[in-house]
Design a protein around this nucleic acid. Structure first.
Lengths: 118, 118
DNA sequence: GGGTGTTGCTACGGAATGTGTAGCGCTACG
DNA sequence: CGTAGCGCTACACATTCCGTAGCAACACCC
């Protein structure tokens, strides 16, 4: 019970960390709350990327974690791997678009805290 | 240097975990990627809650983590504590609303994976 | 047969973070 | 006084993450 640990990707209907209701939002909140996952998804929002490319985009995240997060994202049907590299699936693309308002909020947040940053 | 550790809440313009650009979206992605944080924010979306109440809503999250997350959320100006308990600030409320499309996506996700869940 | 370069991805040890139980100091009510 | 609520912390243990190194497979070129 060390290397081949089952990553236990949260999915709707399964018992996720911190919730046994199986409600989809809980599974998603658990999934998105894992370190680097939102960042990885964000970096894939426009162009596909290879594993190493993605690592650089994410400021050198360790391959251990990146590998785990990509597996979770693939298990959830959010990203996929083809010849062009990792890229969001159509469903994943919808999720990225759903994050648009969150990005807008972040920009407004930046303006409040430190005017004139992007 | 053990108990009074500075939690280092990510803020726009400051160097956050995994990014030195200081772009607001990076700070937010770091903040939201911390365990339980999204869940805590979600549980506060409608009604305020006391510390212990919030702990139960979050399936008994440990007070250590809840305390840390609430501090980060307060430092970020997202939640506040008054006589009625913890509640989102107006800015925090805007963030919660920005998460609306994400919730919708989660519901659709649940329908795909396991039809007839919420 | 080299070499040199990609690719995705794993092993390992140490550091950081999260978990769970107990309990503090405080305020109120009776 | 006792009891109950509050926010929150201490402490020891478990899990997760990080950073470096490196593997196996594939390609290209000589």
């Amino acid at each position: 019970m060390k290397s081949t640990k089952t990553p236990a990707s949260p999915r709707p209907g399964t018992k996720v960390r911190g919730s046994r209701t199986g409600r989809p939002i809980m599974a998603l909140l658990d999934l998105l709350g894992r370190r680097w996952l939102l960042r990885v998804l964000w970096e894939l929002r426009e162009t596909p990327a290879t594993f190493r490319d993605l690592r650089e985009r994410c400021d050198g995240v360790s391959p251990t974690v990146l590998s785990g997060r990509l597996r979770e994202l693939r298990d959830a049907g959010i990203v996929d791997l083809d010849e062009s590299g990792y890229r969001p699936t159509p469903h994943g693309d919808a999720l990225v678009r759903a994050l648009g308002p969150v990005h807008d909020w972040a920009v407004a947040w930046g303006r409040r805290v430190r005017p004139s940053s992007e």
